[in-house]
Design a protein around this nucleic acid. Structure first.
Lengths: 201, 201
DNA sequence: AGAAGTGATGGGACTTGGTGCCATCACCGT
DNA sequence: ACGGTGATGGCACCAAGTCCCATCACTTCT
């Protein structure tokens, strides 16, 4: 308290700096990577971000959600599917969606960040549950978007499911490549591989 | 304490009656159906089963797990896939697995119970997360079982995923039928429908 | 029969996730 | 200078989950 008065205000005033949610997310990822998810308290996260416990829960529904940020993916994929040419087959529309994901989310700039995040998730069942649910939500969004294109119900579900599988496989390959390969290309290839595999079932 | 001595022993001695886990699971399903998952305390469940909180957590890892019992499904599906004739294509082996599930798990005797359980899950996101994770685990088991039959990696994943989708769809149809339809038949039909849909993608 | 052992249970203390409420603070417009 | 607004902090509180130890019913050995 007394030492605080001797130094420039901004050094200590994390309280009113902007981007509280982003600071919290970064602090969380750092701590999870350092000591693990279970050995990190919400209070720990808030403190590292220069905030309080209350503020954490004002920005995130729960402790897990801090790793899954603003779920902008659903809308992104749905819009990309809707924007696909009306002549495109279901899986081609899904390919458009994966392309959009590569352009907007899985950019080469965020590759390292995404990898760290994924490592944390892989190390904790609680986080895997949340991720599984988010994935279900993505599939539901894609299914809806396909239905609105006039795709029959069952076909829409199958296409969305195959798209999600291709996305998962693409992500695995993308995070293993050392070079700065483009996610969109990898995803397109993965989707073709998946489509080919459906034939040999 | 004093009143306990005045009445027959067995009336109050839930403590040493057998099947503690089963009693807990039944009590939990009842209470969840009555007041909802969130309005039910672990202590409530334990009390209705005539047990204590400690005992609950000795039988189940957490509050959610009480609805997902002994995960015997993984082994069942894996064994059924392994037992399928070596000439069977991947999806045919998966069909064998769904058949086994219909014979051992989704029996007409358990239809009502399964329906109540599913209604409770559908009403709560926390439980949906757990179910999503269990489903991932099932898919992983089936994928492994297929790989051990010599099925290539990607094909195994696709087949397992399509099988899981067929299973979900079959379950939806099965729980909607008023008659005592056989799950195995419905599942076989659902798998055929899914396979047909993959063609029109 | 009595003693010792075994396994399931009960219960309380404790940590943590999560909610609710209210006072406080910085900033903005009047 | 004044009041309004929105973000924050802190506290009290409940429930989930962990730990530890005493207790109890039942078994086995002496």
């Amino acid at each position: 308290m007394s030492s605080r008065d001797q130094v420039p205000y901004t050094v200590f005033m994390a309280r009113w700096e902007p981007n509280a949610a982003e600071r919290l997310a970064n602090a969380a990822l750092d701590l999870f990577a350092e000591r693990g998810y279970e050995n990190t308290t919400v209070i720990d996260i808030a403190q590292r971000a220069g905030l309080g416990k209350s503020t954490f829960f004002r920005h995130f529904q729960d402790k897990r959600e801090v790793l899954f940020g603003r779920g902008t993916m659903n809308g992104l994929l749905a819009e990309a599917i809707a924007a696909a040419p009306s002549t495109a087959a279901p899986l081609e529309a899904v390919a458009h969606a994966l392309d959009a994901a590569g352009r907007e989310v899985f950019t080469s700039a965020r590759r390292e960040f995404t990898a760290r995040r994924q490592a944390v998730i892989a190390a904790n069942p609680e986080l895997q549950e949340r991720e599984a649910l988010k994935n279900l939500s993505l599939i539901a969004s894609m299914t809806d978007a396909l239905r609105q294109r006039g795709v029959p119900d069952l076909t829409a579900r199958v296409a969305a499911e195959l798209g999600a599988l291709a996305s998962t496989i693409a992500y695995e390959r993308w995070s293993q490549t050392t070079a700065g390969d483009d996610f969109s290309e990898i995803a397109r290839q993965a989707l073709n591989d998946v489509r080919a595999s459906t034939a040999s079932c």
